[in-house]
Amino acid sequence: MSEEVIVAGWMDYEAGDRDTMLGQLVELGRRTLEEEPGCLDYAMTADPSDERRIRVYERWASQRALDEHFTTPHIKDFRAAAAGLTRVGVSLQAHVIAATRSMR
């Protein structure tokens, strides 16, 4: 069994661009979850304390699933739609998960 990958962090956009980018990311997430069985979770949220920040959380079944994600038609559509938006900062990390346990 391959190890899961979690992508987490944040992206900052010009204040006027954040909500537009968030809308694009929500649509990308919907298509990703529907069309890519290797995507286990995909959530992009507006940070309530920073008008520029989008929080990122993605969970993938494997590194291969994440790599394949970047070759999909919906990623190409997303990149075209987001091309005019201004990102002013980013901090994203990919974490390889060797073990998972419930926290009930």
Results as ranks from 00 to 15, higher is better:
Trp60Met: 07
Leu92Phe: 04
Gly23Glu: 07
Arg30Gly: 08
Arg64His: 08
Val5Trp: 02
Ile97Cys: 14
Ser62Asn: 12
Asp47Val: 05
Pro73Trp: 06
Gly84Glu: 13
Ile75Trp: 05
Ile97Arg: 04
Thr71Tyr: 06
Ser62Ile: 07
Ala94Thr: 03
Asp41Ile: 05
His74Arg: 14
Thr86Ala: 07
Arg53Ala: 02
Ala65Leu: 09
Glu68Asn: 11
Ile54Gly: 04
Ala94Arg: 05
Asp67Glu: 14
Gly16Asn: 10
Val96Phe: 12
Gly38Lys: 10
Leu28Ile: 01
Val96Lys: 11
Thr45Ile: 09
Ile6Ser: 14
Ala46Val: 01
Met21Asp: 05
Asp77Glu: 15
Glu51Thr: 10
Ala15Val: 12
Leu92Ile: 06
Leu40Ala: 08
Ala46Asp: 05
Val96Leu: 10
Gln93His: 08
Glu27Phe: 06
Arg64Asp: 07
Tyr57Ala: 01
Val96Pro: 10
Lys76Ile: 09
Ala15Gly: 10
Asp41Ser: 10
Met1Asn: 13
Thr45Val: 09
Glu35Tyr: 00
Ile97Ala: 14
Ser102Leu: 15
Pro73Ser: 12
Gly38Pro: 11
Val96Asp: 01
Leu33Asn: 10
Ala15Pro: 05
Thr100Gly: 12
Tyr13Asn: 05
Gly23Val: 06
Phe70Ser: 02
Arg59Lys: 15
Glu34Tyr: 07
Trp10Val: 04
Val26Pro: 04
Gly23His: 00
Ile97Asp: 08
Glu35Phe: 00
Thr20Ile: 15
Thr45Met: 11
Ala82Asp: 13
Trp10Ala: 12
Val7Ala: 11
Val26Phe: 08
Ser62Tyr: 03
Leu33Met: 15
Arg87Gln: 13
Val96Gly: 01
Leu92Trp: 03
Ile75Asn: 03
Leu28Tyr: 08
Met21Thr: 02
Thr32Val: 08
Asp19Lys: 07
Cys39Trp: 07
Leu33Lys: 13
Met21Tyr: 02
Leu40Ile: 03
Thr86Ile: 09
Leu40Asn: 00
Ala8Pro: 02
Arg104Lys: 15
Ala15Cys: 08
Val90Phe: 03
Tyr57Phe: 12
Ser49Tyr: 08
Leu92Cys: 08
Ser91Asn: 09
Ala46Phe: 08
Leu33Asp: 12
Gln24Lys: 12
His69Gln: 04
Asp47Lys: 11
Phe70Arg: 01
Met103Cys: 11
Met103Gly: 14
Val7Trp: 00
Asp19Arg: 13
Val96Asn: 04
Ala81Asp: 00
Ile6His: 10
Thr32His: 03
Gly9Lys: 04
